[in-house]
Nucleic acid binder design. Sequence first.
RNA 1: GGACGGGUGGCCGAGUGGUCUAAGGCGGCGGUCUUGAAAACCGCUGUACGGGAAACCGUACCGGGGGUUCGAAUCCCUCCCCGUCCGCCA
Length: 428
Amino acid sequence: MLDRRFVVENAELVEQNCQRRGAHADVRAFVELESRRKTQQFEVDELNRKANAVSKSIGKTKDPQEREARKEEGRALREATTAAQAELDAIVAESETILRVIPNMSHPEAPVGADDKANLELRRGKHEPPTFEGKPLDHVELGERLDLIDFEAGAKVAGHGFYFLKNDAVLLEFALQRYALDLLLSEGFTPTITPDLARNEILQGTGYIPRGPETQIYSIAETDLSLVATAEITLGGLYSGEILDTAKLPIKLCGISHCYRTEAGAGGRAARGLYRVHQFTKVEMFAYTLPDDSEAMLDYFCELECRLFDGLGIAYRVVDTATGDLGGPAYRKFDLEAWMPGRGESGEYGEVTSTSNCTDYQARRLGIRYRTGEKGTAFVHTLNGTAIAVSRALIAVLENYQQADGSVVVPDVLRAWVGKERIVPAGA
RNA sequence: GGACGGGUGGCCGAGUGGUCUAAGGCGGCGGUCUUGAAAACCGCUGUACGGGAAACCGUACCGGGGGUUCGAAUCCCUCCCCGUCCGCCA
Protein backbone atom coordinates (compact mmCIF):
# COMPACT_ATOMS: atom_id res chain seq x y z
CA MET A 1 0.00 0.00 0.00
CA LEU A 2 0.95 3.62 -0.32
CA ASP A 3 2.19 5.81 2.51
CA ARG A 4 -0.73 7.51 4.24
CA ARG A 5 1.00 10.87 4.33
CA PHE A 6 1.92 10.60 0.67
CA VAL A 7 -1.72 10.08 -0.24
CA VAL A 8 -2.83 13.08 1.79
CA GLU A 9 -0.13 15.34 0.38
CA ASN A 10 -0.62 14.18 -3.22
CA ALA A 11 -4.33 13.51 -3.29
CA GLU A 12 -4.82 14.80 -6.83
CA LEU A 13 -1.97 12.75 -8.27
CA VAL A 14 -3.19 9.66 -6.48
CA GLU A 15 -6.72 10.22 -7.74
CA GLN A 16 -5.48 10.67 -11.31
CA ASN A 17 -3.41 7.52 -11.00
CA CYS A 18 -6.44 5.57 -9.78
CA GLN A 19 -8.34 6.68 -12.86
CA ARG A 20 -5.56 5.62 -15.20
CA ARG A 21 -5.36 2.24 -13.55
CA GLY A 22 -9.09 1.66 -13.40
CA ALA A 23 -9.15 1.52 -9.62
CA HIS A 24 -12.15 2.78 -7.73
CA ALA A 25 -10.90 4.33 -4.52
CA ASP A 26 -12.42 7.27 -2.72
CA VAL A 27 -9.24 9.27 -2.22
CA ARG A 28 -11.08 12.35 -0.96
CA ALA A 29 -12.84 10.33 1.73
CA PHE A 30 -9.46 8.95 2.73
CA VAL A 31 -7.96 12.42 3.10
CA GLU A 32 -10.93 13.45 5.21
CA LEU A 33 -10.58 10.35 7.42
CA GLU A 34 -6.85 10.96 7.84
CA SER A 35 -7.45 14.40 9.24
CA ARG A 36 -10.04 12.96 11.64
CA ARG A 37 -7.58 10.22 12.57
CA LYS A 38 -4.95 12.76 13.57
CA THR A 39 -7.31 14.66 15.81
CA GLN A 40 -8.61 11.50 17.37
CA GLN A 41 -5.11 10.10 17.92
CA PHE A 42 -4.19 13.27 19.77
CA GLU A 43 -7.30 12.88 21.93
CA VAL A 44 -6.41 9.28 22.79
CA ASP A 45 -2.81 10.21 23.59
CA GLU A 46 -3.95 12.98 25.90
CA LEU A 47 -6.40 10.74 27.77
CA ASN A 48 -3.73 8.07 28.12
CA ARG A 49 -1.27 10.58 29.43
CA LYS A 50 -3.71 11.78 32.10
CA ALA A 51 -4.69 8.25 33.09
CA ASN A 52 -1.04 7.20 33.32
CA ALA A 53 -0.29 10.15 35.58
CA VAL A 54 -3.18 9.20 37.88
CA SER A 55 -2.12 5.54 37.99
CA LYS A 56 1.41 6.49 38.86
CA SER A 57 0.30 8.77 41.67
CA ILE A 58 -1.75 5.97 43.26
CA GLY A 59 1.39 3.91 43.81
CA LYS A 60 2.83 6.73 45.89
CA THR A 61 -0.30 7.66 47.78
CA LYS A 62 -0.41 6.34 51.35
CA ASP A 63 -3.74 7.64 52.56
CA PRO A 64 -6.44 4.97 51.85
CA GLN A 65 -9.23 7.47 51.27
CA GLU A 66 -7.11 9.46 48.89
CA ARG A 67 -6.23 6.24 47.05
CA GLU A 68 -9.88 5.34 46.53
CA ALA A 69 -10.64 8.78 45.19
CA ARG A 70 -7.74 8.51 42.73
CA LYS A 71 -8.85 5.06 41.64
CA GLU A 72 -12.26 6.44 40.84
CA GLU A 73 -10.65 9.19 38.82
CA GLY A 74 -8.51 6.61 37.01
CA ARG A 75 -11.52 4.45 36.20
CA ALA A 76 -13.33 7.39 34.64
CA LEU A 77 -10.30 8.31 32.56
CA ARG A 78 -9.78 4.75 31.34
CA GLU A 79 -13.39 4.54 30.35
CA ALA A 80 -13.04 7.71 28.31
CA THR A 81 -9.84 6.35 26.78
CA THR A 82 -11.50 3.10 25.75
CA ALA A 83 -14.31 4.98 24.05
CA ALA A 84 -11.90 7.33 22.27
CA GLN A 85 -9.74 4.40 21.20
CA ALA A 86 -12.78 2.57 19.79
CA GLU A 87 -13.61 5.61 17.71
CA LEU A 88 -10.02 5.84 16.52
CA ASP A 89 -10.02 2.14 15.59
CA ALA A 90 -13.18 2.65 13.56
CA ILE A 91 -11.63 5.57 11.68
CA VAL A 92 -8.46 3.59 10.99
CA ALA A 93 -10.41 0.58 9.77
CA GLU A 94 -12.48 2.73 7.43
CA SER A 95 -9.48 4.54 6.02
CA GLU A 96 -7.60 1.29 5.57
CA THR A 97 -10.41 -0.15 3.53
CA ILE A 98 -9.84 2.69 1.09
CA LEU A 99 -6.04 2.60 1.31
CA ARG A 100 -6.00 -1.10 0.44
CA VAL A 101 -7.65 -0.54 -2.93
CA ILE A 102 -5.44 2.38 -3.92
CA PRO A 103 -2.90 0.92 -6.36
CA ASN A 104 0.77 1.79 -6.50
CA MET A 105 1.78 4.91 -8.39
CA SER A 106 2.77 4.35 -12.02
CA HIS A 107 6.07 4.87 -13.80
CA PRO A 108 5.84 8.10 -15.85
CA GLU A 109 6.80 6.20 -19.01
CA ALA A 110 4.30 3.38 -18.57
CA PRO A 111 1.74 3.57 -21.40
CA VAL A 112 -1.58 4.99 -20.25
CA GLY A 113 -4.59 2.89 -21.17
CA ALA A 114 -7.45 0.87 -19.80
CA ASP A 115 -6.27 -2.64 -20.64
CA ASP A 116 -3.75 -4.84 -22.45
CA LYS A 117 -4.71 -3.33 -25.84
CA ALA A 118 -2.75 -0.25 -24.76
CA ASN A 119 0.39 -2.27 -24.00
CA LEU A 120 3.42 -0.97 -25.84
CA GLU A 121 5.79 -3.27 -27.72
CA LEU A 122 9.36 -2.30 -26.79
CA ARG A 123 11.44 -4.77 -28.80
CA ARG A 124 11.67 -8.30 -30.15
CA GLY A 125 13.95 -11.23 -29.44
CA LYS A 126 16.80 -12.55 -31.58
CA HIS A 127 14.75 -15.18 -33.33
CA GLU A 128 12.05 -14.98 -35.99
CA PRO A 129 8.91 -17.11 -35.72
CA PRO A 130 9.46 -20.44 -37.53
CA THR A 131 7.77 -21.19 -40.84
CA PHE A 132 5.78 -24.36 -41.42
CA GLU A 133 4.55 -26.25 -44.45
CA GLY A 134 0.85 -26.38 -43.76
CA LYS A 135 -0.90 -25.46 -40.54
CA PRO A 136 1.08 -26.20 -37.40
CA LEU A 137 -0.58 -28.11 -34.58
CA ASP A 138 -1.25 -26.63 -31.21
CA HIS A 139 0.31 -28.06 -28.06
CA VAL A 140 -2.89 -29.84 -27.05
CA GLU A 141 -2.81 -31.92 -30.21
CA LEU A 142 0.95 -32.37 -30.07
CA GLY A 143 0.70 -33.38 -26.45
CA GLU A 144 -1.91 -35.98 -27.29
CA ARG A 145 -0.11 -37.43 -30.31
CA LEU A 146 3.19 -37.68 -28.49
CA ASP A 147 1.52 -38.91 -25.29
CA LEU A 148 2.95 -36.00 -23.30
CA ILE A 149 -0.08 -34.36 -21.69
CA ASP A 150 -3.31 -36.00 -20.50
CA PHE A 151 -5.98 -33.37 -19.95
CA GLU A 152 -8.81 -35.90 -19.70
CA ALA A 153 -7.19 -37.73 -16.86
CA GLY A 154 -6.44 -34.41 -15.17
CA ALA A 155 -10.10 -33.42 -15.44
CA LYS A 156 -11.26 -36.78 -14.12
CA VAL A 157 -8.98 -36.66 -11.11
CA ALA A 158 -9.02 -32.95 -10.20
CA GLY A 159 -11.38 -31.19 -12.60
CA HIS A 160 -11.07 -28.91 -15.61
CA GLY A 161 -7.79 -27.02 -15.66
CA PHE A 162 -5.69 -29.90 -14.35
CA TYR A 163 -3.52 -32.26 -16.36
CA PHE A 164 -1.01 -35.04 -16.14
CA LEU A 165 2.39 -34.46 -17.68
CA LYS A 166 3.72 -37.76 -19.01
CA ASN A 167 6.85 -39.28 -20.49
CA ASP A 168 9.16 -36.72 -22.09
CA ALA A 169 6.99 -33.82 -20.89
CA VAL A 170 8.15 -34.70 -17.38
CA LEU A 171 11.75 -34.51 -18.55
CA LEU A 172 11.01 -31.21 -20.28
CA GLU A 173 9.48 -29.85 -17.07
CA PHE A 174 12.64 -30.60 -15.13
CA ALA A 175 14.89 -29.49 -17.98
CA LEU A 176 13.19 -26.09 -18.15
CA GLN A 177 13.48 -25.65 -14.41
CA ARG A 178 17.13 -26.65 -14.45
CA TYR A 179 17.88 -24.43 -17.43
CA ALA A 180 16.47 -21.39 -15.61
CA LEU A 181 18.01 -22.37 -12.31
CA ASP A 182 21.49 -22.66 -13.81
CA LEU A 183 21.35 -19.19 -15.32
CA LEU A 184 20.16 -17.66 -12.06
CA LEU A 185 22.83 -19.47 -10.07
CA SER A 186 25.51 -18.12 -12.38
CA GLU A 187 24.03 -14.65 -11.85
CA GLY A 188 24.38 -14.91 -8.08
CA PHE A 189 20.76 -15.60 -7.12
CA THR A 190 20.19 -17.62 -3.95
CA PRO A 191 18.13 -20.66 -4.95
CA THR A 192 15.13 -21.66 -2.83
CA ILE A 193 12.24 -24.06 -2.97
CA THR A 194 9.47 -22.27 -1.14
CA PRO A 195 6.32 -23.48 0.62
CA ASP A 196 3.37 -23.95 -1.74
CA LEU A 197 1.08 -22.62 1.02
CA ALA A 198 1.24 -19.33 2.86
CA ARG A 199 -0.64 -17.48 5.57
CA ASN A 200 -3.34 -15.15 4.29
CA GLU A 201 -1.58 -12.28 6.04
CA ILE A 202 1.44 -12.85 3.77
CA LEU A 203 -0.78 -13.02 0.68
CA GLN A 204 -2.36 -9.71 1.62
CA GLY A 205 1.03 -8.18 2.24
CA THR A 206 2.11 -9.01 -1.28
CA GLY A 207 -1.15 -7.68 -2.69
CA TYR A 208 -3.15 -10.85 -3.21
CA ILE A 209 -6.66 -11.16 -1.89
CA PRO A 210 -7.21 -14.62 -0.40
CA ARG A 211 -11.01 -14.66 -0.20
CA GLY A 212 -13.91 -13.02 -1.95
CA PRO A 213 -15.95 -13.47 -5.10
CA GLU A 214 -13.22 -12.65 -7.64
CA THR A 215 -10.28 -14.20 -5.87
CA GLN A 216 -7.67 -16.07 -7.86
CA ILE A 217 -6.56 -17.85 -4.72
CA TYR A 218 -7.43 -21.27 -3.35
CA SER A 219 -7.79 -21.17 0.42
CA ILE A 220 -7.60 -24.12 2.76
CA ALA A 221 -10.86 -24.52 4.66
CA GLU A 222 -10.76 -23.87 8.42
CA THR A 223 -7.22 -22.50 8.36
CA ASP A 224 -5.72 -19.14 7.54
CA LEU A 225 -3.64 -20.71 4.77
CA SER A 226 -3.91 -20.44 1.01
CA LEU A 227 -2.19 -22.15 -1.90
CA VAL A 228 0.28 -19.72 -3.40
CA ALA A 229 -0.34 -18.27 -6.86
CA THR A 230 3.39 -17.62 -7.27
CA ALA A 231 6.58 -17.85 -5.22
CA GLU A 232 6.52 -14.04 -5.25
CA ILE A 233 4.20 -14.43 -2.26
CA THR A 234 6.50 -16.64 -0.21
CA LEU A 235 9.67 -14.81 -1.22
CA GLY A 236 8.07 -11.49 -0.26
CA GLY A 237 7.04 -13.01 3.06
CA LEU A 238 10.53 -14.39 3.66
CA TYR A 239 11.80 -11.17 5.22
CA SER A 240 8.50 -9.72 6.42
CA GLY A 241 8.83 -7.68 9.59
CA GLU A 242 12.59 -7.46 9.32
CA ILE A 243 15.13 -4.68 9.05
CA LEU A 244 17.60 -5.78 6.38
CA ASP A 245 21.32 -5.14 6.56
CA THR A 246 21.89 -2.36 4.02
CA ALA A 247 25.32 -3.75 3.10
CA LYS A 248 23.68 -7.00 1.95
CA LEU A 249 21.31 -5.31 -0.52
CA PRO A 250 20.37 -6.07 -3.17
CA ILE A 251 19.20 -9.56 -2.23
CA LYS A 252 18.47 -11.68 -5.30
CA LEU A 253 16.42 -14.83 -4.77
CA CYS A 254 15.27 -17.61 -7.03
CA GLY A 255 12.18 -19.44 -5.83
CA ILE A 256 10.77 -22.64 -7.24
CA SER A 257 7.19 -23.44 -6.33
CA HIS A 258 3.99 -24.83 -7.67
CA CYS A 259 1.48 -22.10 -8.47
CA TYR A 260 -2.25 -22.48 -7.95
CA ARG A 261 -4.86 -20.22 -9.49
CA THR A 262 -8.62 -20.53 -9.57
CA GLU A 263 -8.76 -18.57 -12.86
CA ALA A 264 -12.28 -17.44 -11.97
CA GLY A 265 -14.10 -16.14 -15.02
CA ALA A 266 -11.49 -17.32 -17.53
CA GLY A 267 -12.33 -19.42 -20.54
CA GLY A 268 -12.51 -19.54 -24.30
CA ARG A 269 -10.15 -20.70 -26.97
CA ALA A 270 -7.24 -18.55 -25.77
CA ALA A 271 -7.36 -20.45 -22.49
CA ARG A 272 -7.20 -23.85 -24.19
CA GLY A 273 -4.78 -26.50 -22.98
CA LEU A 274 -1.88 -25.51 -20.79
CA TYR A 275 -2.27 -21.77 -21.30
CA ARG A 276 -4.54 -21.13 -18.33
CA VAL A 277 -4.39 -23.93 -15.79
CA HIS A 278 -5.02 -24.28 -12.08
CA GLN A 279 -1.57 -25.63 -11.27
CA PHE A 280 1.88 -25.20 -12.78
CA THR A 281 5.50 -24.99 -11.72
CA LYS A 282 7.37 -21.73 -11.84
CA VAL A 283 10.95 -20.61 -11.34
CA GLU A 284 10.63 -17.10 -10.00
CA MET A 285 13.11 -14.28 -9.53
CA PHE A 286 12.71 -11.93 -6.60
CA ALA A 287 14.80 -9.02 -5.36
CA TYR A 288 14.96 -6.66 -2.42
CA THR A 289 16.78 -3.44 -3.33
CA LEU A 290 17.49 0.07 -2.14
CA PRO A 291 14.98 2.51 -3.66
CA ASP A 292 17.52 3.98 -6.08
CA ASP A 293 18.40 0.57 -7.50
CA SER A 294 14.99 -0.85 -8.33
CA GLU A 295 14.62 0.55 -11.86
CA ALA A 296 17.94 -0.95 -12.90
CA MET A 297 16.96 -4.25 -11.29
CA LEU A 298 13.74 -4.33 -13.31
CA ASP A 299 15.72 -3.90 -16.52
CA TYR A 300 18.09 -6.63 -15.36
CA PHE A 301 15.23 -9.05 -14.66
CA CYS A 302 13.78 -8.31 -18.09
CA GLU A 303 17.15 -8.89 -19.70
CA LEU A 304 17.50 -12.27 -17.96
CA GLU A 305 14.07 -13.28 -19.24
CA CYS A 306 15.16 -12.30 -22.74
CA ARG A 307 18.34 -14.34 -22.42
CA LEU A 308 16.33 -17.38 -21.36
CA PHE A 309 14.01 -17.21 -24.36
CA ASP A 310 16.74 -16.24 -26.81
CA GLY A 311 18.61 -19.26 -25.50
CA LEU A 312 15.58 -21.47 -26.13
CA GLY A 313 15.50 -20.14 -29.68
CA ILE A 314 11.95 -18.90 -29.38
CA ALA A 315 10.64 -15.66 -30.89
CA TYR A 316 9.13 -13.17 -28.48
CA ARG A 317 8.32 -9.54 -27.98
CA VAL A 318 8.78 -7.38 -24.89
CA VAL A 319 5.80 -5.34 -23.84
CA ASP A 320 5.55 -2.35 -21.49
CA THR A 321 2.31 -2.98 -19.60
CA ALA A 322 -0.38 -0.29 -19.73
CA THR A 323 -1.52 1.40 -16.53
CA GLY A 324 -4.92 -0.28 -16.58
CA ASP A 325 -3.32 -3.73 -16.79
CA LEU A 326 -0.71 -3.36 -14.06
CA GLY A 327 -2.46 -4.89 -11.07
CA GLY A 328 -2.27 -3.26 -7.64
CA PRO A 329 1.34 -3.45 -6.45
CA ALA A 330 3.31 -2.85 -9.68
CA TYR A 331 4.87 0.52 -10.48
CA ARG A 332 6.02 -0.78 -13.83
CA LYS A 333 5.74 -4.14 -15.53
CA PHE A 334 7.37 -5.74 -18.56
CA ASP A 335 5.95 -8.90 -20.10
CA LEU A 336 7.59 -11.28 -22.54
CA GLU A 337 5.16 -12.67 -25.06
CA ALA A 338 6.44 -15.71 -26.89
CA TRP A 339 5.36 -16.75 -30.34
CA MET A 340 2.94 -19.66 -30.12
CA PRO A 341 2.30 -21.05 -33.63
CA GLY A 342 -0.74 -23.10 -32.57
CA ARG A 343 -2.50 -20.23 -30.87
CA GLY A 344 -5.37 -18.44 -32.64
CA GLU A 345 -5.95 -18.68 -36.39
CA SER A 346 -2.33 -18.55 -37.50
CA GLY A 347 -0.23 -18.16 -34.39
CA GLU A 348 -0.21 -15.44 -31.76
CA TYR A 349 2.05 -14.04 -29.11
CA GLY A 350 1.16 -15.30 -25.62
CA GLU A 351 2.48 -14.10 -22.29
CA VAL A 352 5.26 -16.29 -20.91
CA THR A 353 6.93 -14.07 -18.34
CA SER A 354 6.18 -10.94 -16.39
CA THR A 355 8.45 -8.78 -14.29
CA SER A 356 7.34 -5.99 -11.98
CA ASN A 357 8.90 -3.27 -9.91
CA CYS A 358 6.62 -2.95 -6.89
CA THR A 359 8.74 -0.16 -5.33
CA ASP A 360 7.87 0.08 -1.62
CA TYR A 361 4.21 -0.90 -2.06
CA GLN A 362 4.63 -4.49 -0.86
CA ALA A 363 7.45 -3.71 1.58
CA ARG A 364 5.31 -1.20 3.47
CA ARG A 365 2.57 -3.73 4.06
CA LEU A 366 5.05 -6.50 4.88
CA GLY A 367 7.20 -4.25 7.08
CA ILE A 368 10.51 -4.83 5.30
CA ARG A 369 12.99 -2.02 5.91
CA TYR A 370 16.64 -1.05 5.81
CA ARG A 371 18.64 1.40 7.88
CA THR A 372 19.21 4.74 6.22
CA GLY A 373 22.51 6.57 6.63
CA GLU A 374 20.98 8.96 9.12
CA LYS A 375 18.87 7.81 12.03
CA GLY A 376 15.87 5.82 11.02
CA THR A 377 14.68 3.27 8.53
CA ALA A 378 12.98 3.22 5.16
CA PHE A 379 11.16 0.58 3.16
CA VAL A 380 13.06 -1.47 0.61
CA HIS A 381 11.84 -1.95 -2.93
CA THR A 382 10.68 -5.38 -4.07
CA LEU A 383 10.74 -6.80 -7.58
CA ASN A 384 9.58 -10.04 -9.04
CA GLY A 385 9.96 -11.68 -12.40
CA THR A 386 9.23 -14.98 -14.05
CA ALA A 387 12.28 -16.95 -15.06
CA ILE A 388 10.32 -19.92 -16.39
CA ALA A 389 6.62 -20.64 -15.98
CA VAL A 390 6.84 -24.25 -17.05
CA SER A 391 3.35 -24.72 -18.50
CA ARG A 392 3.58 -21.72 -20.82
CA ALA A 393 7.20 -22.35 -21.74
CA LEU A 394 6.16 -25.89 -22.63
CA ILE A 395 3.52 -24.56 -25.03
CA ALA A 396 6.14 -22.40 -26.75
CA VAL A 397 8.68 -25.22 -26.98
CA LEU A 398 6.26 -27.85 -28.32
CA GLU A 399 4.59 -25.58 -30.84
CA ASN A 400 7.74 -23.88 -32.16
CA TYR A 401 9.83 -27.02 -32.39
CA GLN A 402 7.26 -29.30 -34.03
CA GLN A 403 8.39 -31.02 -37.23
CA ALA A 404 6.52 -32.07 -40.35
CA ASP A 405 6.88 -35.72 -39.36
CA GLY A 406 4.99 -35.15 -36.10
CA SER A 407 8.06 -35.15 -33.87
CA VAL A 408 9.31 -32.31 -31.67
CA VAL A 409 12.97 -31.32 -31.66
CA VAL A 410 14.35 -30.66 -28.20
CA PRO A 411 15.98 -27.18 -28.00
CA ASP A 412 19.77 -27.40 -27.72
CA VAL A 413 19.94 -25.89 -24.26
CA LEU A 414 17.58 -28.54 -22.84
CA ARG A 415 19.11 -31.64 -24.40
CA ALA A 416 21.51 -32.38 -21.57
CA TRP A 417 18.58 -32.84 -19.20
CA VAL A 418 16.03 -34.39 -21.56
CA GLY A 419 18.67 -36.81 -22.78
CA LYS A 420 17.54 -36.81 -26.42
CA GLU A 421 17.42 -34.59 -29.47
CA ARG A 422 13.92 -35.36 -30.57
CA ILE A 423 10.61 -36.46 -29.11
CA VAL A 424 8.90 -38.91 -31.44
CA PRO A 425 5.42 -40.45 -31.48
CA ALA A 426 5.15 -43.83 -29.73
CA GLY A 427 5.78 -46.67 -32.18
CA ALA A 428 7.46 -44.39 -34.74
C1' G B 1 -1.76 -34.79 17.67
C1' G B 2 -0.43 -35.03 23.44
C1' A B 3 2.65 -33.35 27.81
C1' C B 4 6.08 -29.94 29.71
C1' G B 5 9.35 -25.58 29.18
C1' G B 6 10.12 -21.10 26.50
C1' G B 7 9.37 -16.26 23.11
C1' U B 8 12.05 -9.38 26.27
C1' G B 9 15.70 -3.97 22.02
C1' G B 10 20.55 -5.22 16.09
C1' C B 11 22.22 -9.88 19.16
C1' C B 12 22.60 -12.35 24.18
C1' G B 13 20.09 -11.89 28.69
C1' A B 14 17.76 -10.13 33.83
C1' G B 15 13.04 -8.90 35.20
C1' U B 16 6.30 -12.67 38.62
C1' G B 17 1.43 -6.13 39.80
C1' G B 18 3.43 0.40 41.03
C1' U B 19 10.36 5.43 40.04
C1' C B 20 10.31 -0.41 34.09
C1' U B 21 11.91 5.95 32.40
C1' A B 22 13.31 -2.50 30.83
C1' A B 23 19.28 -4.13 34.68
C1' G B 24 23.72 -6.13 32.69
C1' G B 25 26.63 -7.78 28.56
C1' C B 26 27.91 -7.99 23.21
C1' G B 27 27.89 -5.30 18.78
C1' G B 28 27.69 -0.24 16.61
C1' C B 29 28.73 5.25 16.81
C1' G B 30 31.41 9.42 19.12
C1' G B 31 35.28 10.95 22.53
C1' U B 32 39.88 10.62 25.92
C1' C B 33 44.72 8.38 25.66
C1' U B 34 48.19 6.86 21.22
C1' U B 35 52.85 8.32 15.79
C1' G B 36 48.79 4.79 14.28
C1' A B 37 46.07 0.70 16.06
C1' A B 38 44.63 -2.43 20.10
C1' A B 39 43.43 -2.25 25.21
C1' A B 40 41.32 0.70 28.96
C1' C B 41 38.00 4.53 30.34
C1' C B 42 33.72 8.11 29.35
C1' G B 43 29.30 9.17 26.63
C1' C B 44 25.56 7.93 22.97
C1' U B 45 22.88 3.96 20.69
C1' G B 46 14.99 0.50 19.25
C1' U B 47 10.42 1.31 16.03
C1' A B 48 5.99 3.98 14.76
C1' C B 49 2.55 8.11 15.23
C1' G B 50 1.71 13.16 17.00
C1' G B 51 3.58 18.18 18.77
C1' G B 52 7.97 21.57 18.22
C1' A B 53 12.53 25.92 14.47
C1' A B 54 15.38 22.90 17.58
C1' A B 55 16.77 20.88 22.17
C1' C B 56 13.14 18.00 23.41
C1' C B 57 8.13 16.42 24.82
C1' G B 58 3.71 13.09 24.56
C1' U B 59 1.57 8.26 23.16
C1' A B 60 1.84 3.14 21.70
C1' C B 61 4.88 -1.23 21.25
C1' C B 62 8.35 -6.96 25.78
C1' G B 63 5.56 -13.20 19.73
C1' G B 64 -0.11 -11.80 17.72
C1' G B 65 -5.10 -10.86 19.53
C1' G B 66 -8.41 -10.36 23.70
C1' G B 67 -9.36 -9.91 29.12
C1' U B 68 -8.64 -8.60 34.66
C1' U B 69 -6.86 -3.92 37.23
C1' C B 70 -6.58 2.90 38.82
C1' G B 71 -1.97 0.49 36.97
C1' A B 72 0.47 -5.54 33.20
C1' A B 73 6.82 -7.51 30.31
C1' U B 74 4.71 -9.59 34.98
C1' C B 75 -1.95 -12.38 36.27
C1' C B 76 -6.03 -14.91 33.00
C1' C B 77 -7.94 -16.67 27.99
C1' U B 78 -6.73 -17.70 22.96
C1' C B 79 -3.75 -18.21 18.64
C1' C B 80 1.22 -18.45 16.43
C1' C B 81 6.26 -19.83 16.80
C1' C B 82 10.75 -22.30 19.16
C1' G B 83 12.77 -26.34 22.37
C1' U B 84 12.38 -31.23 24.86
C1' C B 85 9.90 -35.85 25.41
C1' C B 86 5.87 -39.11 23.63
C1' G B 87 2.59 -40.71 19.63
C1' C B 88 1.89 -40.97 14.29
C1' C B 89 4.27 -40.89 9.64
C1' A B 90 7.18 -40.47 3.91
